[in-house]
Design a protein around this nucleic acid. Sequence first.
DNA 1: TAGATTGTTAATCGATTAACAATC
DNA 2: TAGATTGTTAATCGATTAACAATC
Lengths: 226, 226
Amino acid sequence: MRTSERLQNAPSVRRMPTYLHKLSLMHSAGDVYASATKLAEGLSLDSIVVRKDLQLTGAQGVSGVGYKTVDLINSIRRYLGWDGFFDACLVGTGSLGRALLGYQHFMAYGLRIAQVFDRDSRLVGNLVHGHYVHDMIMLPAMVRCSCPDIAILCVPGSSAQGVADLLYSCGVRGFWNFSDSNIQVGPDGVVQREVLLDGFATLSAKIIQKRRQGPAGPSKEDGDGR
Amino acid sequence: MRTSERLQNAPSVRRMPTYLHKLSLMHSAGDVYASATKLAEGLSLDSIVVRKDLQLTGAQGVSGVGYKTVDLINSIRRYLGWDGFFDACLVGTGSLGRALLGYQHFMAYGLRIAQVFDRDSRLVGNLVHGHYVHDMIMLPAMVRCSCPDIAILCVPGSSAQGVADLLYSCGVRGFWNFSDSNIQVGPDGVVQREVLLDGFATLSAKIIQKRRQGPAGPSKEDGDGR
DNA sequence: TAGATTGTTAATCGATTAACAATC
DNA sequence: TAGATTGTTAATCGATTAACAATC
């Protein structure tokens, strides 16, 4: 059963962070203008793709020159809602949870992890990359009080649905689910599931496809990454 | 500039691991047959999507009953090349690298991480989730000898291209790139880039889209996850 | 038989690509 | 001016969805 409207322009949305990253490098390098051509460079994308994507953000360019780097950054951030902050709590401080807490770029891109929880009493009280780990028992009270926009689920698949239900009952509506099981939430909830193996499946299929073309496949130029 | 042929049926390929996971649960539960309807359940997919995907794998079903669970698992694994093993080396044992090394399911899904490298001499010699960390200096000799299919890059973006070049010169052709910069490889190379922020961008866009629909949006049923 | 499901063909929808006039 | 680029409209391509006969 398919339900809930799909995300508009999903492929374009997924490309935005890469543009932002490159734009911030260009900005640091002192580039006042950035053209779609320049942005597409090294990204294995045609410039028309970039131009179409940027149009979604409402960015206005200058013919023959490009887009003002700063304006473009702001347009994309606004489009993604990264001009403000999304507040998040993170549940589960296993190795993946710890890796996410150590990820430097979240703050720069509008995600603020305010609270961290774990069920395991041996981990409670620890500091992980500067984040105090709270006991799950504290979750309802603390989450009801802080009202995070997003919960980042790094718990085992077997407890993911239960934790999601608890968070939903405390008012959380956005879920970034890194567990290996699917979760269901109420009609006003939103879920983004990350499956590490999806990427590996894609890589595997690419390798197999290449092998089938024969070791001496079509030798155009290359450099794909997505 | 777009180059290199795109992956065939990319969306279908990305759904395969989820099918495999569910099938393995069903198999453990003693289900001899699995139907597309049953597989689609709880996955926020229509059964027709599943049926089409399964057709790609060449799986043969039984009208009115479904697919033999074991046969279906094998078909999907064969389709993805997961009936054998892909051998991999992993470079960079920062928090992300360590999280990947701790990921239990890789072995079950055809990925075997044989060698681990790090540049930082303080980390060399450590055991990370049972993997000995070798000095980068050893990489050329060891990689030339073991000929891994895949290199998993968990290094900083600034060194990603250099490490990829080194690996390519040692014969590695598959790259799973977790760094935040794009890499370019030769025409017979294949790259899969994972950008954590892409998923966050998607979640952000979903949240914004929902908000625009108004707090009392269309109240169909729900439960999306992708 | 009735109900469920597969396999397949056709219709729809959306994303990518191409083309080009307008502009700096 | 010449060259580069934007903005926009149209064409193509591929994925999703619908429909339904055949089968167990």
